[in-house]
């Protein structure tokens, strides 16, 4: 996936993130289908308005005038390589799944669940082996990914072990 921070990211406060996350799909999907799929997602995260054929997707980096400091002078975008280069959206299945079912599955998520792809993939890059990314960055990313999945839930020793 390719991420690109929004123009306002980090300008007014650094406790929030605003970004455009681009994904490649394993098959073409129509805007109407994506809108239906988005209805089953958290509206605060997946805005169905972007699934429109003529909706502009602004891609240019912002300009900072005199006296304004770019909070990301080096880079405000990047490519994150995932286990799968393309996302498989099971749009029909997701459209039929209720919000309650999705919420329930979220609450029972654990580290061994195959759906926690981000966490597992990040941990796989931990270390100085071939393809490894060292220790600090993967650990920080893995923690962020985990926290985003389970929030403040206490991690059991069984899962750690």
């Amino acid at each position: 996936m390719f991420w690109q921070l929004s123009g306002s990211a980090g300008v007014f406060d650094d406790g929030h993130v605003s970004a455009h996350l681009y994904y490649w799909l394993d098959k073409p999907i129509a805007n109407d289908v994506l809108k239906q799929w988005a209805k089953g997602c958290d509206r605060r995260l997946v805005d169905p308005a972007v699934f429109n054929a003529v909706q502009p997707h602004y891609t240019a980096a912002p300009l900072f005038g005199e006296g304004c400091v770019d909070p990301f002078p080096d880079s405000r975008s990047g490519l994150i390589k995932k286990a799968n280069a393309a996302v498989c959206l099971e749009v029909r299945q997701l459209a039929a799944e209720s919000k309650q079912a999705r919420a329930a599955s979220h609450n029972t998520l654990d580290l061994n669940d195959d759906r926690v792809g981000g966490f597992s993939n990040i941990l796989a890059t931990l270390g100085d082996h071939d393809g490894g990314s060292g220790f600090n960055e993967p650990l920080l990313r893995a923690v962020a990914s985990y926290v985003s999945k389970v929030g403040g839930k206490k991690l059991s020793s069984r899962k750690i072990g």
Binding site: D14, D26, P28, F51
Partner: peptide
């Protein structure tokens, strides 16, 4: 034309980060 495409963009807008995490 409104056609199927192989890419999507998810717009994350002002998502609150966990305490102590800084986007900068």
């Amino acid at each position: 034309l409104d056609v199927s495409t192989t890419w999507v963009m998810i717009d994350i807008d002002k998502l609150a980060l966990p305490r102590g995490m800084s986007v900068r």
